[in-house]
């Protein structure tokens, strides 16, 4: 088991290094750089621009820049934002609470919807229950979260004359106001999330129901309810947990557009702004953050599988 953990952990290194190299290279291949953004239209002497370039370290060869940046990252220092001059970790930190909260709320929503709906859909396969749930979940994959957000705002406006507040209220200041503000974006992102999980839940249960031990349980006269809850559900949950975990890591993708609609200053919006401003260090920091979360979730899911299913360890 220890060897397996060790091997899987080692595999994370080339992936993360690859992400770092790829982002670093792609950013520098973009037309323009942080300096053209900063001094656009301004009449500045060439020396000032060059001094600024040297200050940001952009005058050095790319590999030197990369090694310096990577060295910092390995020591927990993501560098300074090339746009605001503040530390990247600080800029991400002040926005992370909001995005993380929306992400967690969306996850809870997705789980609450997916587990019962996916199970019902599988049990009542090919009946109207199944058809309704499937249409509902395929629709969840089809509706763009930003549009759903707009429709939610529109409905709230018409029914309750509610407008999304301009400022964010932290949870510990005023939990009610905070939840009232964030439940809507969480719903907008969570619908798609729940749809993905519902579909996984359904197909996973259908697969498990084919197993011999289900037939055995039924043959010895176990109530169908118990067959489902004791035998099928437990075994079907693993792939669903995987999907929920991986989708969580990728929620930032949904947040990028949804935060725009709800006027939320989270890391999704920070990312779009950073790309638009050619803020190299900020984009690098954010992409690396997402990749680390994704790789870690992947790693823990693998571990979970190995713990629960010994066959995997010895493969």
């Amino acid at each position: 088991m220890l060897r397996f953990v060790y091997h899987r952990a080692l595999l994370m290194i080339p992936t993360l290094l690859g992400v770092a190299i790829l982002v670093f290279a792609m950013l520098r291949m973009m037309p323009g750089d942080p300096l053209t953004m900063m001094f656009e239209g301004a009449n500045v002497a060439k020396e000032v621009v060059e001094a600024e370039r040297a200050r940001l370290g952009l005058d050095q060869p790319i590999y030197v820049q990369f090694v310096k940046w990577l060295w910092g990252v390995l020591h927990g220092d993501l560098g300074l934002s090339m746009w605001t001059g503040k530390s990247v970790a600080y800029e991400i930190g002040i926005r992370l609470e909001l995005s993380l909260q929306v992400a967690v709320m969306a996850t809870i929503l997705a789980i609450l919807l997916a587990l019962p709906l996916g199970t019902l859909s599988a049990i009542y396969k090919d009946t109207w229950v199944d058809h309704t749930i499937r249409v509902f979940s395929i629709a969840g994959l089809a509706v763009p979260s930003f549009w759903l957000g707009m429709i939610i705002i529109l409905s709230l406006l018409t029914v309750f004359s509610w407008i999304p507040p301009l400022t964010f209220t932290p949870f510990f200041e005023d939990p009610k106001a905070n939840l009232l503000q964030l439940i809507w974006p969480a719903m907008a992102v969570g619908y798609r999330y729940s749809a993905v999980s519902t579909r996984m839940m359904r197909s996973s249960i259908l697969e498990v129901l084919q197993e011999d031990y289900i037939r055995t349980a039924r043959a010895k006269g176990v109530f169908e309810r118990l067959v489902i809850s004791r035998h099928a559900l437990r075994n079907a949950l693993l792939p669903v947990v995987t999907v929920i975990g991986l989708e969580f890591a990728f929620l930032i993708g949904g947040l990028v557009v949804t935060e725009q609609v709800f006027n939320l200053n989270g890391i999704g919006r920070l990312f779009v702004q950073a790309v638009a401003r050619d803020d190299y260090t900020m984009v690098q920091g954010l992409v690396l953050l997402v990749a680390v979360v994704f790789v870690m979730v992947n790693f823990f899911v693998d571990m979970l599988y190995a713990v629960l299913d010994p066959r995997i360890r010895y493969r």
Partner: peptide, 13 residues
């Protein structure tokens, strides 16, 4: 490496 990016994030870059 490519899989560790959300679709939209990779597309934006």
């Amino acid at each position: 490496v490519l899989l560790s990016f959300p679709i939209i994030v990779l597309a934006i870059v």
